[in-house]
Structures are given as structure tokens and as C-alpha cells.
Amino acid sequence: MATPTIDSPRSGRVSPGYSRTSSSRGNFEMIAWLFMRLSGAILVVLIFVHLYINLVAGDGITGIDFGFVAGKWADPFWQVWDLTLLWLSMLHGTNGIRVIINDYADKNSTRMWLKGVLYTATVVIVVLGTLVIFTFDPCPVIDGVAHVADYCPAP
């Protein structure tokens, strides 16, 4: 009786869930990891100064109104500050959620859907926020009527 030969004893033994199918040799994950650390450190400064200026300095929390925001965004310094804050916090948060989805979603289809919703939300918020910061008009004219506050130049 001939001895049966087994071609490749190990083949098919490892369930496909464990095999790294697509080997991504890019640096994306490394850059994402580095970005989280750097943006995190910058965000600490950006957020606490933002909170102090808005909630503590001057009249404190009672001083916040349309005029206060308008006044801040008339200054290019605060425009850049708030833009950086918006972009860094949105990208930092999005990447954090992306990582959580990767860790906790079991199925590839679930991952794809959750990330789709996440990226759409991010793009909408970032684009909208950027537009608001740069197109903000503190003295809008609506239907021919100028909404004049005391800080607006006389029409």
C-alpha cells in the first residue's frame, strides 16, 4: 500500500481572517500616528487660549454675543487661529474615530459604511466652517435693509 503524500500540510489551516491580504507598504498609518501626537500637542494650546479668551477674559461668559464673534473675526489673527483650531480638531477627531472604527467594527462592510458617514460629515463641517470664517460679514444687508450694529461703519 502506497503511503499517502500530503502536498502542503499547512495549506488551508489558517483561517482567512488571520491572513494579511493586502499589504499596504505606504506610510499612511505612520503619518496618521505622528499627526495625532503633533496635532494633540498644538490643540492643547489652541483650545485653552480659545476657552480663556471666550469665557474668562474681559466680561467673561456674559460678554459672548454676535458682536463679540464679529469683533474677533474682523481680526486676521483670530481668523487664522480659529481656522487652525477647526482643521486640526476636525482631522484629529476624524482620525481618532477612524481608528476606533477599525478596532471595533467586525465586518468590512460595516467599516466601509461607518467610515463613509464619518468622512462625509468631516468634509461638510470643515468646508462649511472654513467658508463661515472667511465669508463672515458682521454687517449684513438683507433684503436691502442694513442690519447695523454699533461697531459697523455708517452706511
Binding site: R20, S23, S24, R25, N27, F28, E29, M30, A32, W33, N102, D103
Partner: peptide, 14 residues
């Protein structure tokens, strides 16, 4: 290092 720079490599460590 190149092998562990994979998306399933060291960067998955939390």
C-alpha cells in the same frame, strides 16, 4: 521595520 510599518503593524498598538 518596513514589514512592521504595515497598516497591521506597530501603528495598530494602542
Amino acid at each position: 521595520l518596513e514589514i512592521l510599518n504595515d497598516k497591521e503593524g506597530v501603528w495598530r498598538c494602542r
